[in-house]
Simulated scan of single mutants.
Amino acid sequence: MTDKTTGAHGSVREDTAPDGDRPLIELRSAGKSYGNIRALHGVDLTVHPSKVTCVLGDNGAGKSTLIKIISGLHQHTEGEFLVDGEPVRFSTPREALDKGIATVYQDLAVVPLMPVWRNFFLGSEMTKGPWPVRRLDIDRMKRTADEELRNMGIVLDDLEQPIGTLSGGQRQCVAIARAVYFGARVLILDEPTAALGVKQSGVVLKYIAMARDRGLGVIFITHNPHHAYMVGDHFSVLRLGTMELSADRGEVGLEELTNHMAGGAELAALKHELAQVGGVDTEELPEEGDLQAPVAATPEGKS
């Protein structure tokens, strides 16, 4: 990998080998309240190196609050948050970045009219020359951006093209490569496939798998169980701020995961009411009790 010294923020964190299978980050009975509103409660989440942890949930399930706690935007008000086994309480996202926790939000935080290489180093530009007449090291930034993108399997013909001209999947992949280059050990991806078609979603899923293969712990936030099951090693389903399901890949199937994500338990409870509505076929709806997960109950006993 190339020399990672930047002009704006000093030396970039170098890659560190994971200490065995020790979790990179852990949430233990974590929660977050905004006054009288409890957004999260009793959430347990563990992220290991070289694993993709998928967090699924419908709108209002608490996914955004979870991201904000891990990324340092908000602080938890219940439970514990550990990084490398040490309790932490981030005050700013910069503190999370210093610990190697990078977040790629759905809007990507890019400047559409700027070239790809400028967006790659946006806020962390390389400079050269003596102070106070230091200037941007454009050649080095272009060379480094091209090399790092190629390391992730992303080949662009022209790094001078505005990043806004790339497809949605390509922009997501550039953001992932940028986070990897700047020393991310934990990569949080906020709904990266939400606004993409099937082909572009496949491109993003490919690079999620590549980030995992490079030793990162990936948190894949999504509402699409099919996308999650393609790359996930562990699945956590949030519902109304609590963890409804937490299971490894070998402990849960796609159908069960989809049922939990779609609110199958609520559908089962309403089956008898739907049966009274003319023209509604309820034969294929689940019965109550059919969706009890055989594993992965949370400490509160939810499944």
Rank of each mutant, 00 (worst) to 15 (best):
M1G: 13
T5M: 15
T6K: 06
A8I: 13
H9W: 07
E14Y: 00
D15V: 02
T16S: 09
T16V: 14
D21R: 15
P23G: 01
P23Q: 05
L24E: 03
K32Y: 11
S33M: 02
G35I: 02
L40T: 00
G42H: 08
V47R: 11
S50L: 00
T53W: 01
L56F: 01
N59G: 00
A61K: 04
S64R: 06
S64L: 04
I67Y: 14
I67W: 11
I69N: 01
H74N: 02
Q75W: 10
Q75D: 10
T77G: 09
E80G: 04
F81V: 05
R89I: 03
F90K: 00
R94P: 01
A96W: 04
A96E: 04
L97T: 08
L97Y: 05
D98M: 00
K99F: 13
G100T: 05
V104H: 10
Q106A: 02
Q106H: 03
Q106T: 02
D107F: 00
A109L: 14
A109K: 12
L113D: 14
R118E: 13
F121W: 07
F121I: 01
G123A: 08
S124Q: 03
E125W: 03
E125I: 03
P132H: 13
R134S: 13
T144F: 06
E148S: 09
L149S: 06
M152Q: 13
D157H: 04
L159S: 06
L159F: 05
Q161I: 10
G164C: 09
T165V: 09
L166I: 13
L166K: 14
S167F: 12
G168S: 10
A175R: 14
A179C: 15
R185C: 06
R185V: 15
V186H: 06
T193D: 13
A194Y: 07
G197S: 04
V198C: 08
A209M: 08
R214G: 10
G217F: 11
I219Y: 05
F220W: 00
T222G: 05
N224D: 15
V231A: 09
H234M: 04
V237I: 11
R239Y: 09
R239C: 03
T242N: 12
E244D: 10
D248W: 15
D248L: 15
R249C: 11
R249W: 14
L257R: 05
T258K: 01
H260S: 12
M261S: 12
A265V: 05
L267N: 02
K271I: 01
A275K: 15
E287W: 01
E287N: 07
G289P: 07
G289D: 09
D290G: 02
D290L: 03
A293Q: 07
V295P: 00
S303K: 15
